[in-house]
Design a protein around this nucleic acid. Structure first.
Lengths: 339, 339
DNA sequence: TTGAAAGCGCTAACAG
DNA sequence: CTGTTAGCGCTTTCAA
């Protein structure tokens, strides 16, 4: 093993090796040489030398000098959920296509972690910051603004930056219609249906509740609000809510609108623990997971259109939004045998 | 809205604002001021000015000057799978704890994408590179070596860098024992059991097959190798394999060792499409997914111990490995009613 | 106790 | 057609 200081390889060394100058090497390596009337031969020689010597341009130095990093940031609540992880994956792929380097930070739906992550991102001079499912997107927009970092909201909208979100109200209405269709098909159109999961403070949950109510109303089914239980995003809160329902009504509801796969997990756990049979109940879930779907082909599930959402996101970055708080809604897809 | 060139804020501006010098400001902002006998007052004043002006240190410049980036990289096959996404999440959290910034790239189990991502990482001057589930970890180690970037393998081992992996053989043996226990409990201890999924070229699959065979052998059950079908990591390949089995044997196997949740998804889809009932068969899956588990409490599932694996990973980075190709095996956990 | 100044590796304006 | 040079913003030695 050679001594561990093989002298860092720079464009200066490369220039010497190639018998040229640093600026020429630089131009060749970053593609600007076309305008600089450099001979094909020289360019080829430089590239050969660089490849041969395993040269790798120092992005820090490039970013510093260019005053742009080529980095694009995203904050995300968490990875371990198919919706968010697929957002991360598609985002990264799209960024790469555009020659940008994506960096993603998980912030656990915690406003403080969101701000810390945003600070980090600003420190790394991201060119844009995508705030996905942020509990407080406007604070982040305010933090970024003085640094000239544009933000875009994804999944949850804000007032200070454009947003790309799912059509939550429409999606929820359609899902509820489908649930009602199933109940009708069973011959029990007036049976109770409940809404479980999500946070009432968050825009998406409120919109979904609105869609849920709208569908019921359209069918002349006014239900008491007590059947709407946005008990949070953790699966743990589903059990007490179901216990309470059962205690009060002495029977399970005939249908459940589940507001996320994590809540679905909590509900399923409760059913199995209590020995109830899930197949006797109509389930509609505003979220999608391939394993949940394949094990429960009778479930109605809403799949948000991640590829399109991310595509719109990049479009928004490329041609500025029509207004500062523009909201682009993307229709989700409803899966399962819709009546 | 003010003119959009508010002159970038640097330590020079800050020095003027605070009535001090750039080097003092720098020292105060990066914590080295304790050794530099700077007065508490000055330090406090500088910090106040910086906070007040929303100053954010330019990490590119810092990295360039310090000749270390504070960035640590990871390449990952994909995010949308609970095992890998949880690796990404835990890795990021642990990196943050250590003041490092984590960057993760998905490479789709494709050697070429792995190499490209590694190039990017080197360009960004990552201090270490973690190769997770890499199809060709040794090539990456070779690429990184001349740049002084140490690599560590995770999930799949390599020969040129230390590795942290699950105890695949042991885990598979234990899982197979549990499957056999179930068969015995049903009174059909000699019924056929098959192995589906994974890639024969990959170390983990080979180890799991070895564990599978060892368990069978220990029970005096020599099975023909044709019952072992490492048909890849995509769920799509499960169907033809099962079709072929059924055609040949005129009956389903009584138990299936499933080598990943993605394969499990393919198998479940096939069962439902064919109208077979999964609950009549003993399933053991070398991988874990909370939704799959909650919908199928009778499934045996192996959960790899991600927190410990990542912990060992960081330990390996902090105190150098005992040998260049050290392999640390972490026991996974087996979930489900083990007999 | 603090400040001046050199330089990390690269790019781009300008000079040949 | 190619090379010289002045920084990008920060850290760190050295001098005061």
């Amino acid at each position: 093993m050679p001594i561990d200081a093989p002298k860092r390889l720079t464009i200066y060394n490369l220039a010497i090796l190639a018998g040229s100058s640093p600026s020429t090497v630089s131009a060749v390596l970053n593609g600007t040489w076309q305008n600089r009337r450099i001979s094909e031969k020289l360019a080829a020689r430089i590239l050969a030398v660089a490849a041969d010597a395993d040269y790798s341009v120092n992005m820090q130095a490039r970013a510093l000098r260019r005053e742009r990093s080529g980095i694009i940031g995203m904050i995300l609540p968490l990875y371990d959920n198919r919706y968010f992880s697929s957002i991360a994956q598609v985002f990264e792929a799209e960024a790469r296509k555009r020659g940008l380097f994506a960096i993603v930070s998980c912030t656990n739906r915690d406003p403080q972690q969101e701000q810390e992550a945003a600070q980090m991102m600003i420190g790394h001079r991201v060119e844009k910051l995508i705030c996905t499912g942020a509990t407080d997107p406007d604070s982040i927009a305010r933090m970024c603004q003085p640094h000239g970092v544009a933000t875009i909201n994804l999944d949850l909208p804000g007032k200070l930056a454009p947003s790309v979100i799912s059509a939550n109200r429409d999606g929820a209405r359609t899902l509820t219609e489908a649930i009602l269709g199933r109940l009708k098909a069973r011959g029990t159109p007036n049976d109770p249906i409940i809404f479980v999961g999500g946070r009432i403070e968050d825009h998406n949950t409120r919109e979904r509740i609105a869609g849920f109510k709208a569908a019921l109303k359209a069918h002349g089914l006014q239900r008491p609000d007590e059947n709407i239980m946005p008990c949070g995003y953790s699966g743990l809160h589903a059990a007490p809510v179901l216990d309470a329902y059962l205690l009060k009504h002495k029977a399970l509801p005939s249908a459940i609108f589940v507001n996320s796969t994590i809540t679905l997990e909590g509900i399923a756990r409760w059913f199995h623990q209590q020995g109830h049979n899930m197949s006797e109940i109509v389930f509609g879930c505003f979220d999608w997971d391939p394993l949940a779907a394949v094990f429960n082909p009778h479930f109605l599930m809403v799949r948000q259109n991640v590829p399109i959402m991310v595509e719109r996101l990049f479009e928004l970055m490329e041609r500025p939004p029509s207004s500062a708080d523009e909201v682009i809604e993307i229709q989700p897809e409803i899966l399962g045998d819709v009546a």
